[in-house]
Amino acid sequence: MKSRTLKRHFAEAFKSLGRNGWMSFASVSAVTVTLLLVGVFLVVLLNLNHLASQIEGDVEIRAYIDRTTKQSEYNDLQQKMEQIPNVNEVKFQSKEDGLQELIKSLGDEGKAFSSLKNENPLPDAFIIKAKKPQDTSTVASEIEKYDHIKKVDYGQGTVERLFKVTGVARNVGLVLIVGLIFTAMFLISNTIKLTILSRRKEIEIMKLVGATNGFIRWPYFIEGFTLGLMGSIIPILVVIFGYEFLHGQVNNQLDTVFVKLLPVYPMVLQLSIMLAVIGGLIGVWGSMTSVRKFLKV
């Protein structure tokens, strides 16, 4: 394509954006509203996912060992555990370390147990982490079958419920996002269709004087892309500043329950790019599907 022609396409696109001022405004608003929803949802979902992963990441299996077990059998046990396919890491925790940790985790009340140091009632233990937190219970039931294992503890019951909740939350979120984007595509392409409808005569004449479909499409392509991009500006600003504010307010309070929100950067930048891309694509898609109908003259 000649550069003169490309320049013409850009000029045409922007001319018609201005000429159809109200229609352009309507399309941009439609994009803005939907992308705003998409953006807010994404922020919430990504954070929920992040929180869920943190909690899930804390899930580990404690396998307590019989006191009668000989030292040489410890190594065999550890090797056997490490060979289970879904196991990521096996750590040994001696009964002394176990007690220390218990005392520490109980804080002031823990000091009462200090006297137990000479006569430690705790057994030695292996701490096992599954590759995927969801595999924890399978791994645990495998380990339970081994000799010399007295008891396996991973928060049975609670963990299964946790995974069920996080799994459902993720799926619901995904469905919502996809639904929102589809609604956006529908809404926007309909608005853009109206602006193009008013120009079907122009397209008809272009075709009659021998313009190629590509030539006719270009300005609409640019126009759609611009509309979508303009519609993503406000959502992007809201996501960046809104999240920065929210993060400042909430993150410190969450610290008390040992979880954190996603850091502001680079997440908001990634989200911004994503919103801009979605906006542009929806705009292009909307105008292209609308033009296609009128190209069949």
């Binding site: 013409r8 004087v209 021998g210 030539f215």
Partner: peptide, 10 residues
């Protein structure tokens, strides 16, 4: 217009 769409020179 008829000449522009066939990319004639100005």
């Amino acid at each position: 217009f008829a000449l522009e769409v066939i990319e004639e020179s100005p």
